[in-house]
Amino acid sequence: MNRATRAANGFVRAWVHGYTLGLPDLARDARRAEIESDLWEHCSALGWSARAAFEVLMRCLLGIPADLAWRAEQVRIGQHAARLVGRVVTWAERAADWVVRRGLPGLTPVSAWSLVGLGGLLLILAPFQPSEPGIAVGGGWFILSGLAIRWGSRLIGRHRVRGLAVLLAGAAPIGLLLVSTLLAPVTMAAVVAVEVRRAWLSRRSTASG
């Protein structure tokens, strides 16, 4: 590769990188790879000569208007995708708002009693697995967490800080230690959010009444 072809190819690459910047990955990578292949084929066919450098440069310069028009088309496609994502996010926000306003009735007691039930089941199974002492510990911990969540959700209406502390003492370790399940942290976060929201709403209605 001589200096002229290196310079011409460098210019073309810089131009392609420039006009594909910020485009969707698929379109950007495909165009860059395709031009890279074209540069190689072109220079290789003409023996990496000065003529190859001239032709490469001319093909790039003459194609600039088409490159810009192509980019404009891709951006329009990107805008459609962005609008779609925007719509989905709006619907998700509305759903989340509805959940918070309705307070997901039953979420806290169901979660709390499920933990108590699961803990009880683990305690029953523990004697059958003497080599796994963790089962009994986990069972006891689940029961205590379930009871703390239930108690905290009742307490938070009257004593905000104390209620929140008890709620978090029950929910946070479950959510953090079982983070890999995804379901546990999401449920526990929802329980805390719903109870805090409910306490805040009841306090506001008491104050305004």
Binding site: D38, R59, C60, L62, I64
Partner: peptide
């Protein structure tokens, strides 16, 4: 066929001096 090859064939067919520009061809 691939991009450069078709540009070369078009050039031969139309007896033009330059190959189809990158932008025009790939667009």
């Amino acid at each position: 066929f691939y991009g450069y090859a078709i540009a070369r064939r078009i050039q031969a067919g139309e007896a033009s001096r330059l190959l189809t520009a990158h932008g025009t061809l790939y667009k």
